[in-house]
Nucleic acid binder design. Structure first.
Length: 599
RNA sequence: GGGGACGUAGUGUAGCCUGGUUUAACAUGUCGGCCUGUCAAGCCGAAGAUCGCGAGUUCAAAUCUCGUCGUCCCCGCCA
């Protein structure tokens, strides 16, 4: 094969009068009888090839070309005749007059058109992913993903970080997500687990003295899938020694500033704002607040606790709270629409959705609502004041246990923002750090305290005393040195300062009711490492797929992953997972009860 | 484990609510023909669907009912 001169998509006016060799796929053929145009496509884009009838043999050959044939063209780059320039194409000023055509391969008729305009179901796209990946959008997403990964590597390397690979075949650890298991042939009956994250290994690397580690690494979790969750996903994982929270936070802020400028020429403001976990729950009803718009939740419990409206007062009496959210200009929405919002709130777990439309705020507020008769003018006035409502607003209320009220209103807040198009600037990027997380949360299903992040998170200095007093202490008051990074309401990642002393780690396990024997079996290796001079350390992991999805404006991380899986965890391209042969099972000393397909 | 939406030529949709006037429509692609400046080319013509699968109701089912499979969204679960 003759050497390729340029990528198709890179031919420009400066190449005019050059003889070039181009290779690519036939994107489309426009046959005018006397002249044939071919759009030739490769990963960099399209260029127009012209076949003219004076070269009879060549012309006849070009008539046989069909979509997705792979061809080589030798031709002369020339300026397009006046009036035929195509401003939509980067190559639109020029065209290549074919002098030779080599058909390198034919193609079946593709299952769908390789067009940026065609609309194809995701099921079909995944089955023919190799065709889907020829389309501009998906291709560009992966290219951007590559550039960002490289930019991150470059930045971290410049900061003295060392990329070290950690094992995929590793050990199952309790806490956190369900593990993917891999049977061991050499140790029949034993299983490796695929890592949910390199957490333990990166901490051990700190003990080893590597000081600054990072890895762009695949992680695995055997949990149900979502638009932003795949069973295997990629994290930017890093860990540092001799640092505190602010070092990690600053590093990530600078890294993102550099990477976004470098790859997309986007400027972001640093430092990012910070908010405590508690404030985030209070004001946004969520620990991953979308701060692109205001519309904060307001707690009106004190105002309504002694009102005649029993739904509110009884809820407060039984330990619940009443929270509200104010929708600007919401008074115009119809009762049908309000009912629909109430249904939404009920689906999210609320018992109902009360509302007040603000007609006038006056000296005494004028309101419209089926529940206004239960409140005194004084109470109504306070509600309007506290929620900072103005005429034409509507206030929604949820009375329930605090976490239900927060959750429902937090979700309703996002729902309203979507429905009434409240986020005007779609390109804005609102980063925010959430800090001061509780170290533990109560698990109703397991009837014990579990780690909010993971069991290696360092408690705050001032809370160490509380840990010693367990179980007499107030466990919810123990705060961890953890931080989450949130971008536009999406949790991008999180990290913490870790425990580097064995005795503290053991006391944490005690609170978590992970018994000593189990502790030793599961991660005795880490505890052992901690006794051999573990330095103070901490780190963070960022969800790489989610980050790229936000940057590309995609709703699903499947759009930034070359070969993703469906919601049932199936790969339509390869048909994985699949049954295996009896021979393979026998080698693993595994018998299964499920019906087997003969193999 | 639960809730919801969807499944009709290669692809994307309409038809379904209100069963029969449907020989299942439209767009695009495919195939054949015409055409020397198009570029999401155009014009003429053709082929292409047992309406996801199974059962039921009915004189009659793409249409109604039940089950089942698959895809997507969400809750639970999960950093």
């Amino acid at each position: 094969m003759e050497k390729r001169t340029y990528y198709c998509g890179k031919v420009r006016a400066e190449h005019i009068e050059q003889i070039v060799n181009l290779y690519g796929w036939v994107h489309s053929r426009r046959d005018h009888g006397g002249v044939i145009f071919i759009d030739l496509r490769d990963r960099e884009g399209l260029v127009q090839i012209v076949f003219q009838p004076d070269k009879k043999e060549l012309f006849n050959k070009a008539e046989k070309l069909k979509p997705e044939y792979v061809i080589g063209i030798k031709g002369n780059v020339r300026r397009r005749p006046e009036g035929t320039v195509n401003p939509k194409l980067p190559t639109g000023e020029v065209e290549v007059v074919a002098e030779n055509l080599e058909i390198l391969n034919t193609s079946e008729v593709p299952a769908f058109e390789i067009s940026d305009f065609s609309d194809v179901s995701e099921e079909i796209r995944l089955k023919y992913r190799y065709l889907d990946l020829r389309r501009t959008n998906l291709k560009e997403n992966l290219v951007l993903r590559h550039h960002i990964a490289q930019s991150i590597r470059k930045y971290l390397t410049g900061q003295g970080f060392i990329e070290i690979e950690t094992p995929f075949l590793t050990k199952s650890t309790p806490e956190g997500a369900r593990d993917f298991l891999v049977p061991s042939r050499l140790s029949p009956g034993s299983f490796y687990a695929l890592p949910q994250s390199p957490q333990l290994f990166k901490q051990i690397l700190m003990v080893s003295g590597f000081d600054k580690y990072f890895q762009i690494v695949r992680c695995f979790r055997d949990e149900d899938l979502r638009a932003d969750r795949q069973p295997e996903f990629t994290q930017v994982d890093l860990e540092m020694s001799f640092i505190d929270e602010n070092d990690i936070i600053t590093l990530i802020e600078n890294m993102l500033t550099n990477v976004l400028k470098d790859t997309m020429n986007i400027d972001i403001k640093v430092p990012f704002s910070r908010m405590s976990y508690q404030q985030s729950l209070d004001e946004y009803g969520s620990d991953r607040p979308d701060t692109r718009f205001d519309m904060k939740l307001t707690n009106v419990t004190e105002i309504v606790e002694s009102s005649r409206f029993k739904v509110f007062s009884e809820t407060v009496k039984s330990g619940g709270q009443v929270k509200s959210i104010c929708l600007k200009d919401g008074a115009k929405i119809s009762n049908t629409e309000i009912n629909r919002l109430a249904e939404f709130a009920i689906e999210q777990g609320a018992k109902g959705l009360a509302w007040l439309k603000v007609i006038d705020t006056g000296p005494l507020p004028e309101l419209e609502s089926p529940i206004k008769k239960f409140f005194t003018d004084e109470e109504l006035k306070k509600i309007v004041e506290k929620t900072k409502s103005v005429p034409n607003d509507i206030i929604f209320f949820v009375a329930d246990k605090i976490n239900v009220a927060n959750n429902v209103l937090g979700t309703l807040r996002l729902h309203l923002a979507e429905k009434f198009d409240i986020i005007k600037d779609k390109k804005t990027m609102e980063f925010i750090w959430i800090t001061d997380f509780p170290l533990f949360e109560w698990s109703e299903t397991e009837k014990r305290w579990v780690s909010m992040h993971h069991p290696f998170t360092m408690p705050r200095e001032q809370d160490l005393g509380l840990i010693d007093k367990f179980p007499e202490c107030s466990v919810p008051d123990i705060t961890g040195r953890a931080y989450d990074l949130v971008l536009n309401g999406v949790e991008l990642g999180g990290g913490s300062i870790r425990i580097h002393k064995m005795d503290l780690q053991n006391r944490i396990f005690k609170i978590l009711k992970i018994d000593e024997k189990e502790t030793k079996e599961r991660f005795g290796f880490l505890l052992s490492a901690l006794t051999y001079g573990a330095p103070p350390h901490g780190g963070i992991a960022l969800g790489f797929d989610r980050f790229i999805a936000i940057l590309t404006g995609e709703d699903s991380i499947r759009e930034v992953i070359a070969f993703p899986k469906t919601q049932k965890g199936i790969c339509p391209l390869t048909n994985a997972p699949d049954v295996v042969s009896l021979k393979q099972l026998k080698e693993l000393d595994i018998e299964i009860k499920l019906p087997q397909r003969d193999k």
